[in-house]
Every structure is written in C-alpha cells, then in structure tokens.
C-alpha cells in the first residue's frame, strides 16, 4: 500500500499540531486519575474492615477489586473521548479543501483511510499509556496478576480501535467536525447499550443484540479472559467501518 506511511506520518503531525489532542488527552487522564483514586480508596476502606477478620484476608485481591473496575471505568471514558480524536480526520480535509490535494496525489483511498486510522489509533494508545504510572504504582504496592493487566490494556486498545473506526466513518460523512463527533458518540453509545435489550428481545435476535454490544466483549478482556470471539468482534468492527468509509468515499466521488 504505497503512501500509507507518508499519510500516517502527516496525520500524526497534524494531530500533534492541533490543541484537540492535548485537551482530549488531559480530560482522559484527569478522569482516569479520579477513577483510579476512587477504586483504590474503596479497596483501602474494604481492606481495613476485612483486616480485622483473618479469614477474609486471603480473599482480598487487588486485581479483582481495583484493576478490573478501573479498566471498565476507562472503557467508558474512552467512549467519551474517542470521537474527538477522529472527528477531524476526513471532515477537516473536506472543509479545508485539502481533499483535492490528497485525492490527486498518486495514493489509493485505502492507503489514505488506513493511514489516518492508524494515526488516530497511535494517539489513542499513547493516551492509554498515560495511565501506566498508576498501574506501576499498584504493582509496587500490592501483588497483581500481570496477564490480567496486559489483557485489560489489550482490550482497551481493541475497544479504542473499534470506536475510532466508527469515528473515521462518521467523519467521512460530513465536513463539520462537530457533526462527525456527535454521530460517532451516538453510534458508540448505541453499541454500548444495545445489549441491554437482550432479555427483552429474547430468542436469536436477543442473542444477536447481546453479541453486538461492545461492553460484554470488553468485560471478558478486563477479567483477563482472552476469548477468540471477543477478539474477532473487535477486529471485524473496524474492518466493517473502514469498508463503509471506503465505499462512502467512492460513492461521493461519483456524485461529484
């Protein structure tokens, strides 16, 4: 895929040059910090109460009581911030007219979309990396299961990848960044809550809704359960949205 690397680097350049990334990153880390503080604080209170009863001490588990809820909290914050990382990707090109440069350079659409997607994913991973010191602190103070932490980060990355692919699709639909962000957030939230109707719908349809929901798949990974079904879900979703983005761009060309 010729040109992908060039597109990727340029997109990173622009993402780093705009204040959006820093604001998004700061909000994410402040929220992450708050959630970390509150889960650790809760664990602390519980430890003290249980500490008087030796029978329960062996059941205290920082991985279960801190790491897991922390990752679930982070996944919610990710839902909130991902649309802001992707909203400018295609919309800004259209608004500024630079699409005309981009689509008259000798690069294919695939290289353009993938390059941009990977740039957003890189930034998302950098943002997640910002929470690593908190994990390091836990490692220093208590016993943690490393594999669960790694699986949790892997899950957050996959979740981010899925949300970003939705975001790049909505960004291709419009030249207005706000519309792109709102659509991506709405779409992401829909994927989040669609599983709630699993019981209501019942039967096969209910199962389909349950499988479509983004949350269930993430919770397994946060627990440290690496199920190929969950991983497949997080790989199929981006492929699907990138496919939609490419098809949409093509149809837009024909319509002029």
């Amino acid at each position: 895929m010729k040109g992908l690397w060039a597109i990727y680097k340029r997109e990173c350049y622009s993402l780093f040059a705009s204040p959006i990334f820093y604001v998004v990153c700061a909000s994410f880390l402040v929220l992450a910090g708050y959630f970390f503080w509150s889960t650790v604080g809760y664990f602390h209170v519980v430890s003290f109460q249980v500490g008087r009863n030796p029978a329960y001490i062996s059941q205290l588990n920082a991985t279960e009581m801190v790491v897991r809820p922390f990752f679930v909290d982070l996944s919610i914050v990710l839902l909130l911030v991902c649309p802001f990382l992707t909203m400018r990707l295609m919309a800004e090109e259209r608004r500024a007219g630079t699409v005309e440069l981009l689509f008259t350079y000798p690069v294919g659409d695939k290289a353009i979309v993938l390059g941009k997607y990977l740039a957003a994913l890189t930034l998302c991973c950098l943002m997640l990396l910002g929470t690593a010191p908190a994990m390091g602190l836990l490692f220093a103070l208590t016993r943690l299961e490393l594999m669960v932490v790694l699986s949790g980060y892997f899950g957050l990355m996959l979740l981010g990848g899925a949300l970003l692919s939705l975001g790049i699709f909505t960004s291709a639909l419009t030249e207005n960044q706000i519309i792109a962000a709102v659509l991506a957030f709405g779409g992401g939230l829909m994927l989040w809550i669609i599983g709630w109707s699993e019981q209501l719908a019942g039967g096969t349809f209910g199962k389909v809704l349950g499988y479509l929901a983004i949350t269930g798949h993430f919770e397994n990974l946060a627990k440290g359960v690496l199920d190929s079904r969950d991983v497949a879900y997080y790989l199929i979703l981006p492929l699907f949205f990138i496919f939609l983005t490419l098809r949409y761009m093509e149809s837009r060309k024909w319509r002029g």
């Binding site: 010729k2 040109g3 690397w5 060039a6 597109i7 680097k9 340029r10 350049y13 622009s14 040059a17 705009s18 500024a96 007219g97 630079t98 699409v99 005309e100 440069l101 008259t104 350079y105 000798p106 690069v107």
Partner: peptide, 28 residues
C-alpha cells in the same frame, strides 16, 4: 500530473518544508 487546485488548499498547520516533504514522500 502536478496539480494546483483552485484556492490553493494546503495543510496550514504544517511548516513549508514538512508539507513539501510529505508531498515528496506521497509521490513516491
């Protein structure tokens, strides 16, 4: 083809040399 579109759209946040380097790279 080298193309200069109408109204000269450019990546305004980039420096001249960074933008031209991108153009060179993307042109292979």
């Amino acid at each position: 083809i080298g193309y200069l579109p109408e109204n000269v759209p450019l990546y305004r946040e980039m420096t001249v040399s960074a933008f031209l380097r991108f153009a060179a790279e993307v042109k292979g």
